[in-house]
């Protein structure tokens, strides 16, 4: 659209009419462009205001939050954050969340990549379908049976119980994304390797895997974020030392009464790491989220 308007002035065989048209067009153009920017601005505001409000409130004390005449003017305080880290041991929870998310993602990749390859190349479609059901089934279905399984193998209250349960989200996602990735690789590459005498595994490790690094990163990041955000599984399976952030924030609400400032500070602490990751690797997140959908 911009191109056509730019070209018009060059085309000056009928200067007068063209000047009129140009003026009219540029006026419409300006109106259109500014309307568009206005709309975009509105969208941006709608997207971020809950975050802004969360952040602002986390620097307010209880009185500033609950007396309504000063929505924006207040003396910022760091007490909420101090409270979060000193009284509530958030550093430990932060670490727990990180360990669980990182390890469950790694394990999901270790299990998921060969599985996706197997499904793509060796007709293990049924496995893919079973993994997909994990996406459809409501999460609470799993809690009691898992507890029994983990109890029997002695993993309750350990990081492992959390890690394995979070893999239920991560693994299917990774497989789901990686199957089309492997399918799209030309078979000839691997077959050439096989003819050269390499084993199937060499072909997988040296050819298929290196070619699919972007997919691995994309699906890995999504898996990490899902794990970081998980509430239901952690609620039941975490012990006191392994409690993750989403569970910890729930404890905040009930210690005495609703401490909004502390609650918002805790919410900020949970959210910030994910937001930072997002800022740095946004392209992969987009790829991950959309690949899962469009390649299905």
């Amino acid at each position: 659209m911009t191109n056509t308007t730019l070209q018009r002035p060059l085309n000056n065989t009928h200067p007068t009419t063209n000047q009129i048209r140009l003026r009219r067009f540029s006026w419409r153009q300006t109106a259109f462009v500014s309307a568009r920017y206005l709309a975009i601005l509105l969208v941006v505001i709608l997207l971020i205001f809950p975050f802004v409000w969360m952040l602002l409130s986390s620097f307010k004390n209880q009185i500033d939050i609950t007396t309504s005449d000063n929505l924006l003017s207040f003396t910022p305080t760091l007490r909420n954050y101090q409270n979060v880290f000193e009284q509530h041991n958030y550093l430990q929870y932060l670490l727990n969340s990180f360990i669980v998310a990182a390890v469950s993602t790694q394990l999901s990749l270790i299990l998921g990549l060969p599985a996706a390859y197997g499904i793509a190349r060796f007709r293990f479609g049924w496995l893919g379908i079973v993994l997909l059901t994990a996406r459809i089934i409501p999460g609470i279905t799993f809690l009691i049976p898992w507890y029994i399984v983990f109890g029997k193998i002695g993993l309750l209250g350990t990081y492992w119980a959390l890690i394995l349960s979070h893999m239920l989200v991560g693994l299917p996602f990774i497989v789901w994304i990686m199957i089309p990735f492997f399918e799209s690789l030309p078979r000839e590459l691997e077959e050439a390797a096989l003819i050269d005498g390499s084993s199937v595994f060499k072909a997988f490790f040296h050819i298929a895997l290196p070619l699919s690094v972007p997919g691995m990163i994309a699906s890995g990041i999504i898996s990490f974020i899902f794990s970081w955000n998980n509430f239901m599984f952690s609620l039941v399976l975490a012990g006191d030392d392994t409690r993750t952030l989403p569970i910890a924030i729930f404890n905040f609400i009930s210690y005495s009464s609703v401490d909004w400032g502390g609650l918002m500070a805790a919410a900020v602490v949970i959210t910030v790491p994910v937001l930072i990751i997002t800022l740095f690797v946004q392209r992969y997140i987009v790829d991950g989220l959309t690949a899962g959908a469009t390649k299905g």
Partner: peptide, 17 residues
């Protein structure tokens, strides 16, 4: 908190743990 306590106990006790 009360509700989560009840749930936590129940899941643990149901599985005989």
């Amino acid at each position: 908190f009360e509700d989560q306590l009840s749930q936590r106990l129940q899941v643990g006790l149901t599985s005989g743990n």
